[in-house]
Amino acid sequence: MKKLLEVLNLKTYFFLEEGVGKAVDDVSFFINEGEIFGLVGESGCGKSVTALSIMRLVPSPGKIVGGKIIFEGENLLEKSYEEMRDIRGRKISMIFQEPMVVLNPVYSIGFQIAEAIVVHYPEVSWDEAWERAVYMIEKVGIPNPRRRAEEYPYQMSGGMRQRAMIAMALINNPRLLIADEPTTALDVTVQAQILELMERLKEEYKASILFITHDLSIIAEISHRVGVMYGGKIVEVGDVFSIFDRPLHPYTFGLLNSMPRLDKEEKRLYSIPGSVPSLLSFPQGCRFKDRCDKAFSLCDKEPPLVEVESGHFVQCWLFSK
């Protein structure tokens, strides 16, 4: 399989008044063509910042301070503004968690979708772009597309808006779709529909997806490979089966155990002790050690990333000699 995207030693830091927040610290992973890669972790672990780093849209005071982002063989961090702008929305698209705040309230849905075409293909006339937008709106399962195209975001339900956003993201047939918690704000029934829509369109458009969520059950359902993030680091990567069947990192273990399952009978759900510390107050060495019940003396030093079985990496002293 060919790698579409490879993130190498990415470091994105936030330079705050109180100190430097290492939101993404030495993160490496890759996504194959046609693959859905799930990135999972609690809120504040750096998964959204990772996504924004790939788009080169990290908000200030954040800055990418190191690493490489190889996309189709080229390092995105070396692209000029204009080159990067051309990639955004055409080769790499992004959809966000809250379709309410992500769609511009003063422009119609159709306008916002058609705009995504015109900014990349100036030769396309506005009328034609509009027609394509209407076609795409229909494609994502919104009834009455012609009328809906003229409506404003707040006139639509949450599910509709998310569909509209997917239409906007896929309109230029991108190679990679980054989906940042695309179903979190939706009702469970709508969630399932949106997921199904995304899988279907991914097949049709032959795109890869970087799927970011805190919800392990979604990851289990749709992704091929999984990265588990904690405290700005990827602590475990592997294909979905080995991660779910043989979790190695105590954090992954905890996450899986705190999720209700039908195939195991348990009296009460496990919960990881403590809560995610703020970006500025992670301990030295392994960032999880204060919440880890297996921590020992070696954890005061930073653990290396080791391959335990083929394609299954973990960053924990328990597994490195």
Binding site: L57, G89, N104, A116
Partner: peptide, 27 residues
Amino acid sequence: LHKEYIVMARAKGVPEKLVIHRHAKKN
């Protein structure tokens, strides 16, 4: 300029000039 729809506009590849004069200014 801190709103998500501005990030979205940039993520769509809208040129910065239009991000400001079309997406941000009107709001």
